[in-house]
Nucleic acid binder design. Structure first.
Lengths: 192, 192
DNA sequence: TATTTTAACTAACAATTGTTAGTTTCATTA
DNA sequence: TAATGAAACTAACAATTGTTAGTTAAAATA
């Protein structure tokens, strides 16, 4: 539940790159851009990383694996479906608030993965399948309305995946408050 | 409510470009990619368009203006706030289903607009302000729960903006059905 | 102290980029 | 028929791209 990376030069580069990727996207950011943001020359980056692609891989795969791990834990927990959904919402807020730039990169630049594209997609499909199963179980238990399952899944995932856009604006709202507010909206709807 | 573009060569290029932008993003798509997809050479594109940037502008600005126009109409309509929200959901589904590739480009590549970036951002802020006002009025009228307004707005907008990702998968579900399902989920929540 | 490691540098490369200039082909119009 | 316009082409450009090779300076280690 922490995943603190050591402060190596390599990790500083990855972090800097993620911030630039967030603003302009992977393809529009050059190695010279990253180097300039670090205050060094582009060639110097290669003392620490193997390629631009490796930076992208480092950003995306570690996050995807963190989500996968979190989902496995929640899946195994002995609570009802609504409670599981609340835990998932909470996990998304937690991971996203610690990795705003990385989440932007994961959401927008995953298709530029090369070697690891297949692996990433496997993790993503697996994650969606697990979430769908939780909702389906909730419907069977009469905890969740028997509406269109896919629409329900889509709506939930869309909001959670867009969190990186909004969380920076909500500094004043703390993580627990945000988690409760969001759970309320997503689970209870907005109608009075 | 239709916005049919004539079948000029220019519009064919814009449409082709939008499809490529959807898959790889504006920056990763070259003029040679677009030309190849059209079966011609890159230089030939310039008989019809002025620049790569002009293609992006044509895709994004026309869509942004279509949303702005739709919002003005709904804003002026004499129905309650929940009904207005339903109309907005319906508009998003309608515009998105007619412009899947364009909506991907609008969502992911707006930051690569140059001259028109400021104008686009103005339209977007204006749209969000109008939507916030509708929700606020709904709370005042006791139609909508007095939860955190920004969280509510965020959740709604996230789902609507992500529609382009999902609509292609839902061919079987028609527009009206999808609109009803989505309104149900967003307005009534998922809890039984 | 001698040696290795870390982290920067300069210079250059081959490929790719958006774009321009000038030309050709062919159908439509005057 | 002659002229015009639409839409393609070849060839080339200057700039930018990711990356490599080889070097240097300082810090850490033996």
């Amino acid at each position: 539940m922490h995943n603190m990376k050591p402060n190596t030069r390599k990790n500083e580069i990855i972090k800097t790159a993620a911030t630039l990727f967030k603003d302009k996207g992977y393809s529009a950011v050059t190695m010279r851009d990253i180097a300039k943001a670090m205050g060094i020359k582009a060639a110097s980056l290669y003392n620490h990383i193997n390629s631009k692609q490796d930076i992208l891989k480092a950003i995306i795969i570690s996050l995807a694996e963190e989500f996968t791990l979190g989902m496995e834990t929640i899946k195994a927990s002995q609570v009802n479906s609504i409670e599981k959904l609340k835990q998932i919402i909470s996990m998304h807020i937690n991971i996203t608030s610690r990795n705003k730039a990385g989440m932007a990169t994961l959401n927008n630049d995953w298709m530029h993965l090369e070697d690891q594209l297949e692996y990433y997609l496997k993790l993503r499909v697996n994650y969606e399948d697990n979430l769908r199963d939780i909702i389906r179980q909730g419907i069977l238990n009469n905890e969740i309305l028997n509406d269109n399952l896919e629409v329900l899944l889509f709506s939930l995932l869309s909001t959670l995946r867009s969190l990186y856009i909004w969380i920076p604006l909500e500094d004043n709202l703390n993580e627990i408050e945000l988690s409760q507010s969001l759970s309320n909206v997503l689970i209870n709807g907005i109608k009075n």
